[in-house]
Design a protein around this nucleic acid. Structure first.
Ligand SMILES: [Zn+2]
Ligand SMILES: [Zn+2]
Ligand SMILES: [Zn+2]
Ligand SMILES: [Zn+2]
Length: 425
DNA sequence: GTAAACGTTCAT
DNA sequence: ATGAACGTTTAC
């Protein structure tokens, strides 16, 4: 209790943006969490938000302040996008520090912006440390690829997932049995129990950015303690941090994944089949800058560490990617060009929007709901401009851990299939 | 102050 | 590994 938090400031809890569609939706009242709410006659023990209301762009608390200057974000005080970025608060997914990019004094360091989440990035410092993302090489060698086919996840895939050495140093034998439960609840219903699982979901997109390029000094730091300069100080702290981060990342990524899926589902539902646009946007071909730290992205299916982790999260979501030999129903959903539209407005734009104006994630809603297609909607080659990407096909393998989908008919209706998935979720 | 959720821990 | 419970934060 005396040490308090000396790590990247108090890790602020993210809150819902209240602007995305999910946030504006209303409780479905059918999901697990909804049913748990007292509002719905549940015990209210879980205290989780509706699965259909998982915010797609969680924002920092209003109380968040810069770790350096102690001020809040001021992105709304400037016009230039770049300025906005500099004045906005960015939270590092690795060290959890929240700071103004402009408050950083680093010359050669680059931050990796996650344009999927409002004020999220990986501070340059963390990269300098070597924590590319969270991948710290398995110091146990217990890594094993129990994944027979991991190269199936393209829709919701992520770069080097979190991986760290599990260092336990705070293990205290507890003789007294930690009893949970403070009050008992009577069974509200027994029999009609829908199996649902899920969490928020989101994936990381990496973008390099150079906050500054003139001074190559160390970063700043209001308090020289651990703030600003962690990792390069204490090894123990580093290890501890890693461990903590690891655990945290688990749930976080898990939730993020789910969100992604929800978005996809909605998207598909709105437009059974829409334009065909691939979405490979990883390769960050630097126009003219052989970044020293630009070669760590296994764009190819050649993972070796985060396989297990990914598997776990997937399982939590209700489907797994590995073969568990059980007798589950396997549904193959073929999504045609359901991936992100990848609207690129500025090709040369370096810094994408991070937490700028009110624009959580309004997917292009131009199609509305006009299902009445003119004619011949099933043309494999509609456009003449055929980008080098022909991979408009994403096959997702979903395996329901329970409650086998009684839908024996899997027509071409993607909407139908996905709809079922949604219900199950 | 309240109610909703987040993030973490505990229990199978 | 997965799910449930819970403390605590966050917004109002
Ligand atoms: Zn719900
Ligand atoms: Zn939202
Ligand atoms: Zn600042
Ligand atoms: Zn950091």
């Amino acid at each position: 209790m005396s040490g308090s938090k000396a790590l990247g400031g108090a890790r602020r809890r993210r809150t819902r943006c209240r602007r995305c569609q999910a946030c504006m939706r209303t409780e479905c009242g059918e999901c697990h969490f909804c049913k748990d709410m007292k509002k719905f006659g549940g015990p209210g023990r879980m205290k989780q938000s509706c699965l259909l209301r998982q915010c797609t762009a969680p924002v920092l608390p209003h109380t968040a302040v810069c770790f350096a200057c102690g001020e809040a974000g001021k992105e709304d005080t400037v016009e230039s996008e770049e300025e906005k970025f500099s004045l906005s608060l960015m939270e590092c997914t690795i060290c959890n520090e929240i700071i103004h990019p402009s408050c950083l004094k680093m010359g050669k360091s680059e931050g990796i912006i996650n344009d999927e989440i409002p004020n999220c990035w990986e501070c340059p410092k963390c990269h300098k440390e070597g924590k590319t993302s969270k991948d710290q090489t398995d110091g146990l060698g217990k890594r094993r690829m129990d994944n027979g086919e991991v190269s199936r996840w393209k829709l919701t895939d992520e770069p080097p997932a979190s991986k760290k050495k599990s260092l336990s140093v705070e293990d205290a034998p507890r003789s007294d049995g930690p009893k949970r439960k403070k009050e008992k609840e009577l069974p509200q219903d027994s029999g009609s129990k829908k199996k649902i699982k899920g969490a928020r979901e989101k994936h990381l997109k990496k973008q390099k950015v150079k906050p500054n390029s003139s001074d190559s000094s160390e970063a700043n730091g209001p308090n020289s303690s651990s703030g600003g300069g962690h990792g390069s100080g204490t090894a123990a702290a580093s290890a501890l941090l890693s461990a903590s981060q690891d655990q945290r990342s688990h749930q976080r990524e898990k939730l993020e994944r789910f969100k992604r899926m929800c978005q996809l589902l909605e998207r598909v539902r709105d437009s059974s089949s829409s334009s065909s646009s691939s979405s490979e946007s990883d390769s960050e071909s630097d126009s003219d800058s052989p970044s020293p730290i630009a070669a760590s992205e296994p764009s190819s299916p050649a993972y070796g560490g985060s396989a297990r982790e990914r598997n776990r999260r997937l399982a939590e979501l209700g489907f797994s990617a590995s073969e568990e030999s059980e007798g589950e129903s396997v549904a193959e959903v073929e999504v045609e060009g359901v991936e992100e539209p990848q609207r690129r407005r500025g090709d040369g734009a370096r810094v994408r929007r991070a937490a700028l104006e009110p624009e959580p994630e309004e997917e292009e809603e131009g199609v509305g709901d006009h299902r009445a297609a003119p004619a011949a909607p099933a043309s494999p080659q509609p456009n003449t401009q055929t980008p080098p990407f022909t991979h408009t096909h994403s096959t997702v393998q979903m395996r329901f851990t329970s409650a086998p989908p009684p839908s024996p008919c899997m027509n071409q209706s993607v909407t139908l299939t996905l709809g079922a998935a949604l219900i199950i979720l």
